[in-house]
Design a protein around this nucleic acid. Structure first.
Length: 257
DNA sequence: ATGCCAGGGTCCCCCTGA
């Protein structure tokens, strides 16, 4: 199988970031781009199809929303719903298939404040994701999960573990659910290639977080065992976070061979 | 505990984000 480049990026509104998305598509020419937080029902598919991409979008009014762009027109939508909660109407999940590999794009719930229904919703969503991944592992289907996980995996992934203690992105219950997922045999692609690196994928717009490098690493690629064998690089491209009127996240890039 | 910033929508204030 040929080399592939896959990118995940929370764009914080496709309407506000259309030019930035187009720039990432032309500069990186990824085979697959997964984006999160479309933030609105409108999705300008035509402008990205003009760049040679097939688009799969699951938008939602005002909040959430995810999309996948694929260069290969053979890419097929598997589902845009994470199973096992019919009452869940939030657009946070897309699964596509290409050449026998499943590419899953997630916008995992933030979960704050933790004393509201938002936190149990996050934990339940993580249980559902675990069950979904478990089935794929059991069926020996090669897959990867990319996206905004809203999980800070470890102390090294944030500028101040103390500042994040108690937060929905860092709580023990969140870590336990994340660990259950990786215990299926999934690997954090960034950590495979950057064992001790302190790099972030999100910097708040407020308090000069970018200038002070007060960031967190919450955008990830988790790889199934077969995909670990194919991975050749994984890195974070900080440049788009420094563009004019940027998203508060920056892209994470995975290369397969 | 709150605002700090940014985007969307109910649209000049309020909600959400992380």
């Amino acid at each position: 199988m040929e080399n592939m480049k896959i990118i995940s990026w929370n764009v914080n509104s496709i309407k506000a970031r259309g030019d930035h998305v187009e720039k990432v598509l032309t500069e990186h020419a990824p085979d697959i781009l997964m984006i999160q937080e479309l933030k609105g029902l409108e999705f300008p598919a035509a402008r990205f199809e003009a760049l040679g991409y097939t688009c799969f979008a699951k938008p939602q009014k005002a909040y959430n929303g995810v999309a996948i762009f694929a260069k290969d027109p053979q890419a097929k939508l598997v589902t845009d719903v994470l199973p096992n909660d019919p009452s869940d109407e939030q657009s946070r999940f897309l699964d596509i298939e290409l050449n026998g590999v499943r590419y899953i794009n997630i916008y995992l719930p933030n979960g704050n404040p933790v004393d509201t229904e938002k936190y149990p919703y996050k934990l339940g969503w993580m249980d559902r994701l675990h069950d979904y991944a478990e089935k794929l592992v059991h069926d020996r289907v090669p897959f990867l999960i990319g996206g905004d996980f809203n999980v800070i995996p470890a102390d090294i992934d944030c500028y101040s573990p103390k500042a994040w203690a108690g937060d929905a992105l860092f709580r023990p219950e969140t870590h336990a659910k994340y660990r259950a997922l990786t215990n299926l045999g999934l690997y954090d692609a960034f950590r495979i290639f950057n064992r001790d690196a302190e790099q972030y994928s999100f910097w708040d717009y407020q308090r000069g977080a970018l200038q002070n490098n007060h960031g967190i690493r919450i955008d990830h690629f988790l790889l199934s065992p077969a995909m670990v064998a194919r991975a050749s690089a994984c890195y974070i491209d900080k440049a788009p976070r420094e563009w004019e009127r940027p998203s508060d996240h920056t892209p994470i890039i995975l290369e397969l061979s």
